[in-house]
């Protein structure tokens, strides 16, 4: 996104229901939607848009498992190999006592790992200034955007007519 400028033709819709119908229509007409921007998560948009299921939870499971392993094997190593101490006459390897810390570390690593992954795959971060198409997208406008780099006049015209048919309240173009 940062390397080359994108020419984008986008339409703004006033309502999420109009947007859903428009996206459906675009898919039926085999128009290649670049992205859809909304002020809030619109339910039912993902399947219409054909978005694959997110794999974030798989990453989360792996981070969590790493946390479990670090905590459990770490504590086991400390109390059986590195510096065994008897506490209250209990065995060195007192597994039940390790459960709370193991659980906490699992949750901690899973949460931190997932949040960091989320921002990395989104291309987000403190100070990152991703270009936005319209300031009202975070307010009350719903946007469908097409990339128009190298598209012919007739193709662009086709997109424009799609916007007017599907009820877009505004159509603009922008290079980002």
């Amino acid at each position: 996104m940062k390397d080359q400028n994108k020419e984008v033709l986008y339409g703004l819709y006033d309502d999420d229901e109009i947007l859903l119908d428009a996206v459906k229509q675009a898919r039926e007409n085999h128009l290649d939607i670049w992205d859809v921007f909304t002020p809030f998560p619109v339910h039912g948009l993902d399947p219409i848009l054909g978005l694959a299921e997110s794999r974030l939870h798989i990453a989360g499971f792996i981070y969590g498992a790493i946390g479990t392993a670090i905590a459990f094997f770490g504590m086991s190593w400390v109390f059986t190999r590195d510096w065994p101490i008897i506490f209250g006459g209990k065995p060195y390897w007192s597994v039940p006592a390790f459960i709370p810390v193991t659980f906490e570390l699992t949750v901690l690593l899973c949460a931190i790992g997932m949040v960091v992954s989320f921002y990395i795959v989104n291309g987000q971060g403190f100070g990152v200034d991703n270009p936005t198409l319209d300031d009202r997208i975070t307010d009350d406008k719903f946007c469908i955007a097409f990339q128009t780099n190298g598209k012919s006049e007739s193709e662009i015209e086709k997109l424009r007519s799609f916007f007017s048919e599907s009820g877009a309240s505004e159509v603009n173009s922008k290079t980002i």
């Binding site: 998560p41 619109v42 949040v115 990152v128 975070t138």
Partner: peptide, 25 residues
């Protein structure tokens, strides 16, 4: 606010991940 909002755009894919993340958290 541009700094602290981390370049949020409201893209459909980002919202999808956001929903997943919220649910799992």
């Amino acid at each position: 606010y541009s700094f602290v909002s981390m370049g949020w755009t409201g893209s459909a894919k980002h919202w999808q991940r956001h929903e997943y993340l919220s649910l799992i958290l």
